[in-house]
Design a protein around this nucleic acid. Structure first.
Length: 924
RNA sequence: GCCCAGGUGGUGGAAUUGGUAGACACGCAGGACUUAAAAUCCUGUGAUUGCAAAAUCGUGCGGGUUCAAGUCCCGCCCCGGGUACCA
């Protein structure tokens, strides 16, 4: 009897929906478990085979936990604001909401087929006003907060104002950007605007001047992504760096907590490492250098104060505020030219320029604080204005970038730490003895650092300083399709709108473009004013705004009064298992942690971290196919007939009509009008008259025609096969190219599984007691599957199921006790076929309500072990030995063994290594 | 450039974390069943040499540690992701 996936899958989809099988509520009698997938962005291309990889894994885990007796929260929703929909809106004039909703509908249809156990009653969309109300609400909360370093948490701004009124800001220990000191008296005498300006320097959501990629022709700010080599990707217009007032979130107030709390997370070490590097804590010192013939002081940040006697020159960022002032007349022209040269480069470009070393001498000098030497001041792109003090003391002997710079410009290289060979390269290691360094000679690096720190503090020319690479998060986007800021302006100062006016809805505009004056699209909105008087902020929030706290909203998605109720939050707490791409390592994952900590400070959430355990899924890449067309003709040449003298171009061809690299020529001709008359001369085909395409592994994308859509596969093979195959492809964390070829093997497994439960006429399983062989197969499988699921090694579980079914088929086992246990075990992986068999066996409820089969180790006990016997590490034969035997007994059996004597021949044993239960190795 | 991952048969991958390299599949070849096809089943399949028994080589490349290395250490090459406004 055949397995017909089409009817069976449709039937159970309907059953699950009609009976709300996946609906979840708070249940205090059961332990909770929260499984979350990273928020998908509903792209216009629909779901491709790469998307469900993580969802299938998390679904298997959710269903497994449910069988184990947990109350599992497994929601899904959409990160629905974003650039692609807006781009499409700009091109077509269609409101981005329309396309977004269409895309979401398509995604949901595709997801439904795969058989996920999502509780759709909890769905959230970031673009829905009832959702973004809470995004705006958190923003206002940040706007109304400051960071008190004393209590080490965010507090209401009102506390700070009370302190100002009492004592001014002299004793406030805050994370802030305020440059002035004032007394209580002065505070009271400031006018409202002055007070607001000061408060802005303390708020956790504040306005700041930042550099952006400005494209004058498009009248808008561009993402780095949209800029290619200094020109806009769209239109190819020049892009310049420009300073602009932008909202920012004071995430840097949390850098120490973001760093420390990583320790307790169950994330991969590499991911934690990425976050640590991103936060970039470095211990160092700020040291002042006097500038010759100038009253200014050049402050540098260095992590190696011990090398101060090795300073060869100073390097200042081209945008450093002192540059123009200190530059001498003779050098002015060159310096200005260089500033112009670096002005429009991105930071990334500037840092990557390692082969093309560039820089200019300013003509100015500093005086070395200890030796009194004159030292040249240079400017170079490799020093960034935004990090440290924007200036460094270059120690070429002990820093590779300084070394390369010194070599290039013939600047002095002075060794001050012994241990390397500075004629070849910089010696960066922090081990060695200090030399050529006056009063620190002979000290170890560590001691030299503290000695110098002590000296500079004595001389009042410096102090120890901890620096972080992490910067405050820029929170404005000059776009339409995002959350509006609940902010209006009065007298040029930002004010929050009243809380009862939330959400501030996105207004209609006549075009999704900036205004002629270069304001963001929202400035086009007609009559859009607060209290008919004050204009609103025209920027919108960035992508990460809506995705920073969505995991909380799933706990209580319909709550109109709170982001999340205390009851819901205290039950669901935080995410137990989070699955998503590693590309979010420094964006979303750090912002969410920050938002969560902010809410935690106010007691609005009960856990200080949002995601306890995290698994990064790898990307499924596409395999693109190419055809080769001789230039200026419509003649195509098969891959192996290409000759070096031919002038041809490789064109992407849709992978749907290429199989095993062989092109279906007829379908290709029908594909696009320009190929209708495509010619395939026999001499340019392979000898068997096939056309062979070239192939390459690339990112799966519409433009490369390499997108494999799950719908067709599910229609042909069924969702269970599709789910198993995605898991069977390999470890979830690894990147791999998609290849549909192997799916047959999994489809065969499903058919074979079905046959275990059926004879030619129908369902047929017996109540006969299983024998020890069958029990052993079952329990070996339960053990392996359980261990594999726990460590999310789902590819190996699929193999184990295959082995189990192969073995049971060989034994012709159709016993209920074995098969129905196996069926429950398989149900998280293949929910449809197992649900069908579960009901055929007479159960009336869903298999999701079944109990997970219990493992009994007694069935696996073995009395003997088969030892691999190797000579010098090379396997020669095997030897079965009872478990209870001692090493001496094993040794005795071994040396009397025929095979052993044969392999040893005339050689002498030097040593026999016996590792019990593992291996025997004979050294000869 | 910097940070993080990865590299094992023709292909996807496995290997209890230092202990039998290639499990499980795909593909391919041969065979059975069938009028035929599909489906199913059986056999073989890392490379080289050999009739065979077997031997040698073999986990990106070059070294090292060890009785034993895909796994640990040092150096290099290649590919992927991130690099702060794609999501």
């Amino acid at each position: 009897m055949e397995y017909h996936h089409r009817e069976i899958e449709k039937k159970w989809q309907k059953y699950w929906e009609d009976n709300q099988v996946f609906k979840t509520d708070i249940d205090n009698n059961k332990p909770k478990y929260y499984v979350l997938d990273m928020f998908p962005y509903p792209s216009g291309a629909g779901l491709h085979v790469g998307h469900p990889l993580g969802y299938i894994a998390s679904d298997i885990f959710s269903r497994y936990k449910k069988l184990k007796g947990f109350n599992v929260l497994h929601p899904m929703g959409f990160d629905a604001f974003g650039l692609p929909a807006e781009q499409y809106a700009i091109q077509t004039g269609q409101h981005p909401e329309i396309t977004t909703m269409q895309n979401i509908k398509r995604y949901k249809e595709q997801l439904a087929k795969i058989g996920f156990s999502f509780d759709w009653t909890r769905e959230v969309l970031t673009c829905a006003p009832e959702y973004y109300k809470w995004t705006q609400w958190v923003f206002l909360k940040m706007f109304d907060s400051w960071y008190n370093k004393q209590t080490d948490k965010a507090e209401p701004l009102q506390n700070l104002i009370s302190i100002f009124e009492k004592n001014g800001n002299h004793e406030v220990n805050a994370h802030h950007g305020c440059k002035i000191k004032f007394s209580a008296e002065q505070w009271k005498n400031f006018n409202e605007k002055q007070q607001q300006e000061i408060l802005l320097d303390y708020r956790l959501a504040y306005l700041s001047n930042t550099m952006v990629n400005w494209c004058p022709q498009l009248g808008t700010v561009l993402a780095n992504d949209e800029v290619k080599d200094g020109f806009s990707e769209r239109g190819g217009f020049p892009v310049v760096r420009k300073e602009m007032k932008q909202w920012a979130l004071r995430i840097t107030a949390y850098n120490e907590r973001l760093l420390n709390d990583l320790d307790e997370l169950d994330w991969s070490d590499s991911l934690k490492e990425v976050q640590r590097n991103w936060i970039g804590k470095s211990q160092g010192a700020i040291i002042d250098f006097n500038i010759e013939n100038n009253n200014n002081i050049l402050k540098v940040f260095t992590t190696r104060p011990d090398t101060i006697f090795g300073v060869g020159f100073m390097v200042v960022a081209p945008e450093h505020q002192l540059v123009l002032e200190i530059t001498t007349k003779e050098q002015k022209e060159k310096v200005l030219e260089y500033i112009e040269f670096t002005k429009n480069k991105t930071e990334r470009e500037r840092q990557s320029e390692v082969k093309n070393i560039s820089g200019v001498f300013t003509g100015a000098y500093v005086i070395h604080p200890f030796s009194g030497e004159k030292i040249q001041i240079w400017i170079s792109e490799y020093v960034l204005g935004g990090y440290g003090t924007g200036a460094i003391m270059a120690v070429p002997a002990h820093d590779s970038r300084d070394y390369a710079f010194a070599k290039h410009f013939n600047l002095p290289i002075k060794e001050v730490v012994a241990g390397g060979d500075i004629s070849i390269e910089a010696y960066e290691t922090k081990e060695g003895t200090i030399i050529n360094s006056d009063f620190i000679n002979g000290l170890k690096v560590k001691d030299a650092i503290s000695k110098i720190l002590q000296k500079v503090e004595e001389k009042k020319i410096g102090f120890a300083q901890i620096n972080y690479r992490l910067r405050d998060a820029i929170f404005s986007r000059q776009r339409y399709w995002g959350e509006p800021f609940p902010i209006y302006f009065k007298d040029e100062m930002p004010y929050p709108i009243d809380l009862d006016k939330l959400p501030l809805e996105l207004p209609e505009v006549d075009a999704y473009l900036p205004t002629d004056r270069g304001e963001p699209p929202l400035a086009r909105a007609k009559n859009w004013k607060y209290k008919n008087e004050f204009h609103f902020e025209a920027s919108t929030m960035p992508g990460f705004a809506g995705s920073s706290a969505y995991y909380l909203r799933y706990m209580d998605p319909k709550n109109g009064k709170q982001l999340v109720s205390k009851e819901a939050n205290e039950y669901w707490k935080n995410v137990d298992l989070y699955i998503g791409g590693a590309e979010h390592a420094t964006g979303h994952l750090i912002y969410s942690r920050f938002w969560n900590k902010f809410l935690f400070d106010y007691g609005l959430v009960c856990e200080k971290e949002p995601f306890k355990k995290l698994i990064n899924q790898g990307m499924i890449q596409g395999v693109s196919s190419f055809v080769y067309r001789i230039n200026n003709t419509n003649i195509f040449v098969s891959k192996n007939k290409l000759r070096p003298d031919m002038e041809y171009s490789a064109l992407h061809v849709d992978v749907s009509f290429v199989k095993n690299n062989i092109l279906n020529i007829e379908e290709f001709k029908k594909w696009r009008p320009e190929f209708t008359n495509a010619q395939f001369p026999v001499e340019y085909l392979e000898d068997n008259e096939n056309y062979i395409c070239g192939s390459e592994v690339e990112k799966m994308s519409k433009s490369k025609y390499n997108v494999v859509n799950p719908d067709e596969l599910i229609d042909k093979y069924g969702a269970d096969t599709f789910r198993l195959y995605e898991m069977f492809l390999g470890p979830i964390e690894m990147h791999k190219p998609w290849d549909t070829n192997g799916i047959e093997g999994v489809a065969r497994f499903i058919r074979k599984y079905w046959r275990l439960f059926h004879n030619e006429t129908g369902f047929d399983i017996s109540d006969e007691k299983p024998n020890s062989k069958e029990l052993k197969i079952l329990h070996k499988t339960i053990k392996k599957i359980t261990e594999d699921i726990e460590k999310l090694s789902l590819n190996t579980s699929v193999s184990s199921f295959m082995i189990c079914v192969n073995e049971l088929t060989d034994l012709k086992c159709n016993k209920r006790e074995i098969l129905m246990a196996l069926n429950t075990l398989l149900s998280p992986f293949a929910p449809y076929i197992t649900e069908e068999l579960w009901h055929k066996d007479g159960n009336n409820d869903s298999i999701t309500k079944a109990n997970y089969p219990e493992f009994n180790s007694n069935y696996l006990v073995e009395n003997t072990f088969v030892y691999p016997v190797s000579f010098n590490g090379k396997l020669k034969f095997k030897l079965e030995i009872p478990n209870e035997m001692s090493e001496q007994e094993i040794n005795k059996i071994l040396i009397e063994n025929e095979e052993f004597i044969k392999h040893l021949a005339d050689k002498v044993t030097k040593k026999i290594i016996i590792v019990k239960g593992k291996i025997i190795n004979i050294v000869i």
